[in-house]
């Protein structure tokens, strides 16, 4: 593992990922909520709301993927492995969600 601290450039990339994710998801959630209240539900409102939630959930996941790629590029294999394990744990949550959805 390299003793180098996280570079300011890498920190800014992560900041951009997080900021973009929140902005996109908040926009979808607000549009979906207003549309759902105005029309009493319906497919377009449900689509926007679910898109907002999925983008919100995908934001930290994307941040972990970007970090893994960055550490691979830096050849920092220790941290590449750690971030990849975090990614696998998030995938495990998604798999668990699918299993519960089927069974119950």
């Amino acid at each position: 593992m390299s003793a180098e601290r996280t570079s300011p450039r890498f920190e800014r990339v992560i900041g951009t990922v997080l900021r973009t994710g929140v902005a996109l998801s908040s926009t979808c959630l607000m549009a979906g909520l207003l549309l759902s209240l105005a029309t009493g539900g319906g497919a377009p409102a449900a689509f926007l709301l679910n898109a907002g939630i999925i983008i919100l959930l995908a934001t930290p996941v994307t941040r972990v993927i970007v970090s893994t790629v960055e550490y691979v590029i830096e050849r920092d294999w220790g941290f590449a492995t750690l971030t990849f394990i975090v990614l696998l744990e998030l995938v495990a949550s998604a798999v668990a969600a699918l299993v519960f959805n089927r069974k119950l």
Binding site: L18, I53, T59, P60, V61, R63, L90, S93, A94, A97
Partner: peptide, 13 residues
């Protein structure tokens, strides 16, 4: 963010 996502995915799914 990562912590809450691991939990929220399960509730959402």
């Amino acid at each position: 963010g990562v912590t809450a996502t691991a939990g929220a995915i399960i509730y959402y799914g």
